[in-house]
Simulated scan of single mutants.
Amino acid sequence: MIHARETSPIEKVRDASRRIVRELGFMKPTVGATGLPISAVHALIEIGARGKLTAAALGEILDLEKSSVSRLLRKLVDSGEIEERENPDDARSKILSLTGRGRKMLERIDSFGHGQVSGAFGHLSQEQRRTVVAGLGAYADALAAARRGEGGQAGASGVDIVAGYVPGVIGRVAEMHGRYYVEPYGFGRFFEAKVASGMAEFSERLDRPANGLWVALRDGRVMGSVAIDGEDLGDGAGHLRWFVMDDALRGLGVGRRLLAEAIAFCDRRQFRHVDLWTLRGLEAARKLYEDFGFTLVEEFVGGQWGTEVTEQRFRRTPRMGAEGDASPLKMMG
């Protein structure tokens, strides 16, 4: 009797990856009806998502050599999809942005891609959809972390996501915020104290059904958190707050797991919309928010934390809702 060899998880992922590449049409010389190769499509998507980029930043995002990026951009400039402008901060580089033609092409790309995913989602249950969103995102993060040589399986293993209050969470969330924001933004004890007092007030309301807290634990120590406050914005809106990770777990997909729990909670509660406030420059976090359906709706300069920073408000709208409160830095308390 011949026994079929059991396929390992690694081989299953490799097989699924090959099938995804083929089903999405990436084996073909151009994507969909765009007439563009996949690298050009990705370039337009990334420039369009950020508004403007330098060639160096684009190359880092796409993981392409400088010469490959130069050839790619020259073709897109010549075809009229992107334009180059002088960089006021660095005369050695240029700022890239989409032209009107490029924005129209991006609309075609988004429509085509949305149709592909929507068609596939039609064959999945809600639970399967959430699994796909969280799983693919975590896998993509892990691939990037492995390419950069960050962490590893040991770094992400043994991390549990638990719901609700755990001893020490208020102090740890305040500590992680304080340590993370002090270097890039110069926030000090006033900011950390505000985070702690906000968390303490929120913890008194955790028993109410509109509020939720999820914590990443490793060996009993709080290593990350995210909260949904379903009361402070009013008007049936949810508020994503205190999303923060310990540096030891960054890039390992744990933050995505936390967000997946929070967003699933929001969907079950059927909030009119979910808002969060953050700071410009946190590109990894922004990409993660956008993966979960958040879009930038407001940007403004503020100095109430002791240094002038550009604050941003993002919104996720499962269905149309009214405009919410626009108080600064709501995500951080």
Rank of each mutant, 00 (worst) to 15 (best):
S197D: 05
H177S: 01
E183H: 09
A196Y: 05
A120M: 13
A156Y: 14
R179V: 12
F190Y: 11
E204S: 10
A91N: 12
R208L: 13
R92P: 00
R172N: 01
F191W: 15
G135S: 11
S93M: 05
D219K: 14
R147F: 06
A144G: 12
E127M: 07
L206Q: 07
R221Y: 05
R179G: 00
G164P: 02
K194W: 07
A200F: 03
S97L: 11
I161E: 09
G137E: 10
G122V: 04
T131Q: 14
Q128A: 08
R205H: 09
V173G: 00
T131D: 13
K94C: 05
R221A: 07
L98P: 01
Q128V: 08
G115R: 15
E201K: 14
G137K: 04
R147A: 13
G164Q: 10
V162S: 06
R129F: 04
A210D: 10
A134M: 13
R208P: 00
R147M: 09
G113S: 11
E175N: 05
V173L: 08
K94S: 15
R172D: 00
R172P: 00
A91R: 15
H123E: 06
L206R: 09
V159L: 07
E192G: 04
G168D: 02
R205A: 07
R221D: 02
K104D: 13
R92K: 15
H177F: 14
A145M: 12
S203N: 11
L217V: 07
P167L: 03
F202D: 03
Q116W: 15
D110P: 00
R148V: 02
R108H: 03
G220F: 10
A154F: 08
I170W: 01
A200W: 06
A210F: 02
R179F: 11
F191D: 04
K104L: 05
T131S: 06
Q126D: 14
G152Y: 11
A138V: 08
G122C: 07
S203P: 00
V159R: 04
A200Y: 06
D141W: 05
S203W: 06
I161R: 10
E175P: 01
I109F: 04
S203F: 01
F187V: 07
A144F: 09
L124Y: 10
R205T: 02
Q128W: 08
A91C: 10
L124T: 10
V117T: 07
R179A: 13
E183Q: 12
F202S: 01
R221H: 06
T131H: 06
Y181I: 05
L98T: 02
S111T: 13
Y181N: 03
P167W: 00
S97W: 04
R129L: 02
I109W: 01
G100N: 04
E192C: 01
A146Y: 05
